[in-house]
Write a protein that binds this DNA or RNA. Structure first.
Lengths: 103, 103
DNA sequence: CAAACTAGTTTGCAATACAAACTGGTTTGT
DNA sequence: ACAAACCAGTTTGTATTGCAAACTAGTTTG
């Protein structure tokens, strides 16, 4: 049975955004990643990446550890449990919706 | 083979928005629909529905015909060919992405 | 020791999303 | 007749976004 199209409006708006979904998708398979890794992989600008990460952190979808590699700053990002849960829920809903879109 | 996560950024931003995707999803299976039908089915507010429709019209994803039902205004919306094409492309890309999101 | 580089953050601005208020007209009630 | 309520949308005001340029604090290089 086809799902209700109104399910579209139930998607987590924080994740239903291309840059943030991309970041979450990069972080999901790994334990953690640093800023420069994400910068390269996402191809976002630094400012853009920084603000999206801040938004995800504020939602408690990821944790941030500020440290050093030698003498230069190093910031490490990792999904939290609730970030993983939110991603899994979004993924499930997105699949249902994508399958149900009319032909 | 898994797709490149960067495909996420290739999604049509106009359609990667919940209210607008909902409107397009409602319009796709039908030939046309009037404002009140969309208002009921989408459960958006009138202002919100109006501005999203205007945006889709501006992108030439839908056409608008203003007429009357008896003496009261009646506005009829229909997807254009390029609107249908855009929807089909978005649907295909969304399915690929949804399938490829990491487990 | 100044210039250039590194790892991010902050700022400024244009575009968005949303609902309340508005518009132009019609119907209803008295 | 005429005001009040209603109808089908549109416009407006405001708060939130998304983005990249400019900035910061420190480090390395020439």
């Amino acid at each position: 049975m086809a799902i209700d199209p109104l399910q579209i409006t139930k998607l987590d708006s924080l994740l239903h955004q291309q840059s943030r979904l991309l970041i979450m998708t990069m972080l999901f398979p790994v334990e953690s990643a640093d800023f420069l890794y994400l910068l390269q992989e996402t191809a976002l600008t630094k400012g853009n990446l920084s603000t999206h990460l801040a938004k995800l952190e504020k939602a408690d979808y990821l944790s941030v550890e500020k440290t050093y590699r030698g003498k230069t700053p190093l910031t490490i990002y990792a999904l939290t449990t609730s970030g993983r849960d939110a991603f899994a829920t979004y993924r499930r809903q997105l699949r249902e919706i994508a399958d149900a879109l009319p032909e």
